[in-house]
Every structure is written in structure tokens, then in C-alpha cells.
């Protein structure tokens, strides 16, 4: 592939010696809406976090725009899962969106007028400008999600990695987020989205990565959505067995239940 936006090679990531990603290898074309799909616990979030340098892989490596992430960090923007923060934190919408303008080289400097203008523009794009002064504790799920997306937009990146931006949002928010992503793609941005819904994925994305710890398939949406691939990712005895294993584990060690849930999120 020519000038891949993301390259992942022989990537293996484990958690407590249990592999979450196993020898994953793919390249992604730039300027596309890319969906990452797979059952719960298939390593989707782990993969995004590994690309963002939050998790160190056991083996393999990741390149973004042909370089190490640190060299192109300014051009990459990350939208974490909505549940990963405490929304009762004392901050308003503007405070959060402005975080997108924080630059590690200028941590002791005040934000500029331009930073504020970019934050306002980002809020406008997600139709949240009227809520700029609203406390984040008073937002609906869809609004929280749009605030996170606005924060990512404020970074003016070329590549966006979003973890479940459609999770728990109402139909109106879903539509406006999708519209926004399509618009960003038209501007030449590359967007990689972790998604949980097979039904909508076919219409949302140009390119699909199917994961189930190992890479099942990566390619244009029509090529990937075959019966065989979906069976490999979602069906099959392997998944059922691992579900039973999880169930037994959770019954055997009730105190660890929270840990298991966390692990599923990874």
C-alpha cells in the first residue's frame, strides 16, 4: 500500500499473560472512514490505545504516517471512551474542548486567542456552541460524546482515532456525528472508529477491520463483510468457549468481577 496512514506489524499485546491482541498486522489507506469491529473483549480499544502509545506492546510496532507517533503527535487526535472520565468533574464544556489546544511544549503559557477561536469553531461543528458554558455534569450522553469530538477537532489533526463515539448516543446525535465524520473525510482527514454495531457499520464505513484477538480481516467494506469473516469474528466455538471461561471465572472470584469488566473494555 502506498503512504499508509497507519501501519501495524506483528502486534501482540497481552494483559496478565492473556493475549488481547495476537500478531495483528495491517496497513490502512489515508482519507477513509475506517471502522474497527469485533465482539466484546476482542481487543478493539486495546488496539486504539496501543496506536496512541498508551499501552506498550509485547511485540510488533506501529507507525503513523510512516513515522513514530511521537514525531507526528500534533497531527493525531484521540477520542477516548465516554465512560473513561468522571463527568462530575468541576469543568464546563469550554474547559474540556480547550484541552484539545494544550501543547506539551507550552504547558506554562496561557492559551491564546486563536486557541479559543479554534475551540469555538470546533463546538460550532458539533452543534454544541450554545452549551459552551454548560457544566459537563449536566450533559446528556450524546452531548458528552460531541464535546469529546469537539475537543479532538480543536487539535486540527489529520488523523482521528475514536473509541465508540456512537455508544449510548440518541438517534439525533448519531446522525449528526456521522454527518460530521463524513464531512471530515471530505476534507481529506482519516478517521478510525471503534464501533460495536454490525448493522450500521456497513453504511457508515469505507474500510473495515474485523478483530477477534487476531486480525480476522482488513479491507474495503464489501470485501470484508462476508459470511465467512463474520463467522470467524463473531461465531464459532472459540468465542462461546471463552465466554464460558469468563463466566466461570466471574463466578469463582466474585471480588474480581470489576476487574473482568475492565478487561472487557480493553
Amino acid at each position: 500500500m502506498k503512504n499508509p496512514i497507519i501501519e501495524v506489524h506483528n502486534l501482540t499485546v497481552s494483559y496478565n499473560k492473556r493475549p488481547v491482541l495476537w500478531d495483528v498486522d495491517y496497513e490502512l489507506p489515508p482519507g477513509q472512514l475506517i471502522g474497527v469491529l469485533g465482539p466484546n473483549g476482542s481487543g478493539k480499544t486495546t488496539m486504539l490505545k496501543t496506536i496512541m502509545g498508551l499501552i506498550r506492546p509485547d511485540s510488533g510496532f506501529v507507525e503513523v504516517m510512516g513515522k513514530k507517533l511521537d514525531e507526528v503527535r500534533d497531527k493525531v487526535s484521540y477520542v477516548p471512551q465516554r465512560e473513561s472520565v468522571d463527568w462530575d468533574f468541576p469543568a464546563n464544556v469550554m474547559d474540556v474542548v480547550l484541552m484539545g489546544r494544550y501543547n506539551p511544549k507550552h504547558m506554562f503559557r496561557r492559551l491564546s486567542k486563536e486557541d479559543r477561536e479554534l475551540a469555538v469553531a470546533a463546538l460550532e461543528k458539533v452543534n454544541m456552541l450554545p452549551f459552551a458554558e454548560r457544566q459537563i455534569s449536566q450533559l446528556s450522553g450524546g452531548q458528552q460524546q460531541r464535546v469529546f469530538i469537539a475537543r479532538a477537532l480543536a487539535r486540527q489533526a489529520d488523523l482521528y482515532l475514536m473509541d465508540e463515539p456512537f455508544a449510548g448516543v440518541d438517534a439525533a446525535s448519531e446522525e449528526s456525528i456521522l454527518e460530521l465524520l463524513t464531512g471530515m473525510k471530505a476534507e481529506g482527514k482519516s478517521i478510525m472508529v471503534v464501533h460495536h454495531d454490525l448493522q450500521t457499520a456497513r453504511n457508515f464505513f469505507d474500510w473495515i477491520i474485523l478483530l477477534n484477538t487476531s486480525l480476522v480481516a482488513s479491507g474495503p467494506v464489501n470485501e470484508v463483510f462476508t459470511e465467512q469473516n463474520l463467522q470467524a469474528a463473531y461465531g464459532g466455538k472459540l468465542t462461546v468457549l471463552s465466554q464460558i471461561a469468563d463466566l466461570v471465572a466471574s463466578k469463582a472470584f466474585p471480588l474480581r468481577e470489576k476487574g473482568l469488566q475492565d478487561r472487557e473494555k480493553l
Partner: peptide
């Protein structure tokens, strides 16, 4: 304080 992980993705130590 708001989100250590996000701060790290921006490159903040």
C-alpha cells in the same frame, strides 16, 4: 486530573 490517559495522548508527561 481530568483524564491522565488523554493528557498522555496529547504528549503531556
Amino acid at each position: 486530573t481530568f483524564h491522565e490517559e488523554y493528557a498522555a495522548t496529547v504528549g503531556i508527561a
